[in-house]
Computed example of a mutant assay.
Amino acid sequence: MTSETLFNLILTTGQTNTAILMIGSEGSRNDPTVKPDPYQDFDITYFVSDADFPTFEQFDRSHFGDIMIQQILPEKNRWCWLMQFMDSNRLDLKIQPVSSVPDYLADDTLNTILLDKTGSYRNLPATSDQTHWVQRPTQTDFDNSITEFFWVSTYVLKGILRGELLYANFFFETIVREELYRLLTWRVGVDTDFSLSVGKAHKRLPDYFEGLERLYDLSDLTRTSQALSTALTMVDDLLPSLSHDLQLTYDKTAVDRTTDYIFRQL
Results as ranks from 00 to 15, higher is better:
115 L>W: 08
115 L>P: 04
118 T>W: 02
122 R>D: 01
123 N>P: 09
124 L>N: 11
124 L>P: 12
126 A>N: 15
127 T>M: 10
129 D>N: 15
130 Q>K: 14
130 Q>V: 13
132 H>S: 04
132 H>C: 08
132 H>K: 13
132 H>Y: 11
134 V>F: 06
134 V>H: 06
135 Q>M: 07
135 Q>W: 00
136 R>P: 12
138 T>S: 15
139 Q>M: 09
139 Q>T: 12
140 T>A: 11
142 F>I: 06
142 F>W: 04
143 D>V: 06
144 N>I: 04
145 S>R: 10
145 S>D: 14
145 S>H: 04
145 S>Q: 12
146 I>Y: 08
147 T>H: 15
149 F>C: 09
153 S>N: 10
153 S>F: 05
153 S>C: 13
153 S>D: 05
153 S>L: 09
155 Y>H: 11
155 Y>A: 08
157 L>K: 12
157 L>H: 02
158 K>A: 09
158 K>G: 05
158 K>L: 12
159 G>E: 10
159 G>M: 06
160 I>S: 02
161 L>Q: 14
161 L>F: 00
162 R>A: 10
164 E>T: 07
165 L>T: 06
167 Y>T: 06
168 A>M: 04
169 N>V: 11
169 N>A: 15
170 F>R: 13
174 T>M: 13
174 T>L: 11
175 I>N: 11
177 R>V: 00
179 E>D: 15
179 E>G: 06
180 L>D: 02
182 R>W: 01
183 L>D: 08
184 L>E: 06
184 L>Q: 06
184 L>A: 05
185 T>P: 06
187 R>C: 09
187 R>M: 02
187 R>P: 01
189 G>S: 02
191 D>M: 01
191 D>V: 00
193 D>Q: 14
195 S>Y: 04
196 L>V: 02
198 V>C: 08
198 V>K: 03
198 V>M: 09
198 V>S: 09
201 A>R: 15
202 H>L: 00
204 R>Y: 07
204 R>G: 00
206 P>L: 01
206 P>K: 04
207 D>E: 14
208 Y>R: 00
208 Y>V: 00
209 F>E: 14
210 E>C: 04
212 L>H: 10
214 R>K: 10
214 R>H: 13
215 L>C: 05
215 L>W: 01
215 L>S: 14
215 L>E: 12
216 Y>V: 03
217 D>Q: 03
218 L>P: 12
218 L>G: 02
220 D>I: 04
221 L>A: 05
222 T>V: 11
223 R>S: 15
223 R>N: 15
223 R>E: 11
224 T>M: 05
225 S>F: 02
228 L>M: 10
229 S>M: 11
230 T>C: 12
230 T>L: 12
230 T>E: 14
230 T>P: 00
232 L>E: 03
232 L>C: 05
232 L>G: 10
232 L>F: 03
